[in-house]
Design a protein around this nucleic acid. Sequence first.
DNA 1: TAACAATCCATTGACGCCCATAAAATTCCA
DNA 2: TGGAATTTTATGGGCGTCAATGGATTGTTA
Lengths: 159, 159
Amino acid sequence: MDRFVSTVTNKIDAKGRVSIPAAFRAILERDGYRASGSPGIYCYPSLDAPALDCGGERLAQKIDGLLASLPDYSEERDELSVALYGDVQVLTIDGDGRIVIPEALRTHAGLGDDSGGQVTFVGLGDKFQIWAPLAFDARRKAARDKVQEHRKLLGGSSG
Amino acid sequence: MDRFVSTVTNKIDAKGRVSIPAAFRAILERDGYRASGSPGIYCYPSLDAPALDCGGERLAQKIDGLLASLPDYSEERDELSVALYGDVQVLTIDGDGRIVIPEALRTHAGLGDDSGGQVTFVGLGDKFQIWAPLAFDARRKAARDKVQEHRKLLGGSSG
DNA sequence: TAACAATCCATTGACGCCCATAAAATTCCA
DNA sequence: TGGAATTTTATGGGCGTCAATGGATTGTTA
């Protein structure tokens, strides 16, 4: 199965458009995205980071599956629906492979004028994230430090 | 299958008209809504929230199915029938894609002059809800907290 | 005819779609 | 293997269409 991997930083233009990395687009297409008549890509605020989680049909079906397991008209289901469906935005990819990130999502990810007009795409396997470049640098550095610690604990003489 | 997703906030004008988000309208049309001679959209007070539940034919059938699953003449069925059918309003969409929310429904959802002349449409899969913007913000926060508890079900090593 | 409702029309701004350009990668061939 | 030709990407901009909104006009009913 194809996975989203690697990290790419692209520009946002004056109209708020960003090119999705070609490698990611290719995966979305194989994942059920159809150039025409397609719903688009699913995108929602990441729960534990100032970033956006994005994916294709596979991700949408995951959400459906979770909700379908709860009884209709239960309060629990309504609440989950709000958080899962309600926060999801379906973004369409234009003919040139670009999307426009809506205001609500940009706010969550800190993609304001201060982000230097750039966004970072981060592959995470079956989904990918969109970050403000600086915020992601910090996150990445923290992750590296953590790995270093683990190495020490593991007594890693080889890496 | 088409689902209602995402959250949109629109204005109510002086005459009480609100535009239904175009994306939602498109789903209603595919769900059996016909521009002319159509019954309209089904709308009723949400059972457990200060909001309105709305949907098309698919929602109506779902309610039918739910009631049919309960034993005839059971107290439970009677109560649910009243709760679900009793307050249902069939709203028509005008030529410009707008509806007028009747007084009784506006009261339940707290869509008064205090709501800033705005309403929030929240996609919930096979139905959508109409909220007063501020009330929905609170609900959204609660819902997100709840999802945190369910994250493991989403298979998320992150997010 | 007053009050209200439904339909129609007009404006504005956002968005989708198309094309142009430049840089980068890939292919192809000597 | 080197380099030229071609294709793919990323990005910028123009323009037409449509959605959202406000206002006017017509119709209906008490």
